[in-house]
Amino acid sequence: MLFAALHRAGLANQPTSVSRDDGLTLTDTRIFAAVRCAPPDNKPTPGERDTCAPWLHRELELIRPTLRVVVALGGFAWNAFWPALRHVYGVRVSPRPAFGHGAHWTGGSEVPTLLGCYHVSQQNTFTGRLTPAMLDEVLSRAIDLAADS
């Protein structure tokens, strides 16, 4: 569902990806994770997030000059953003805005805008909590925000 949405938004050259050498290319898009492995029951803990944080911070540092918008897929990613923002940009946000689908936070021109989106898990997509149209809307908003910054 994610790659199909990226394709519809013009951010991917094809709607599916089945292997690392299947020809998928992304345009002006980078996908990275708050945790580096799939934990038991696919439910990462805050401790796992904190253990993996240096990798997330490094990725953000590497793309910092061009990063304008972050789409957090799920509340876990949303919550991982705030310590990363503090570490990479020196910005502390308090109180932190609550996660929700379509949630939007902007901290000014020096930091990326954050958009919330329900995670593209089977639990969310099979139940209709997240539909292709909902994902398309968030990606469209991200593209518009990136163009305006």
Rank of each mutant, 00 (worst) to 15 (best):
A103E: 13
G75M: 10
C52T: 10
S121V: 04
L139F: 14
S140A: 15
T29F: 03
L24A: 02
G75I: 11
V18W: 09
L60G: 07
F32I: 13
N42T: 08
M1A: 10
E59Q: 15
F3W: 09
A53S: 06
F99S: 12
M1S: 13
I31R: 02
L85A: 05
R8T: 04
L60S: 07
A9R: 03
V69R: 01
N42K: 09
A72F: 03
L62D: 06
H119T: 01
P83W: 04
F81Q: 10
L114A: 14
L135S: 12
V93W: 06
G47K: 08
A146I: 08
R20T: 01
V18K: 05
T25F: 00
F126L: 15
L115K: 11
R64D: 07
R36Q: 15
T16F: 02
A77N: 10
P40N: 11
R30D: 09
A146M: 05
R86W: 05
D21K: 03
T45W: 04
G23Y: 00
F126Q: 14
H101W: 13
A4T: 15
S19A: 10
K43Q: 14
R58M: 01
A147G: 09
P83N: 07
S109K: 11
V18N: 05
C52K: 04
S17R: 07
P44T: 08
Q122D: 08
P65T: 06
I143V: 14
R96I: 13
P46E: 08
F76H: 07
L73P: 05
Q122G: 12
L11A: 13
D41K: 14
E137H: 12
S149V: 09
R58T: 13
V138L: 12
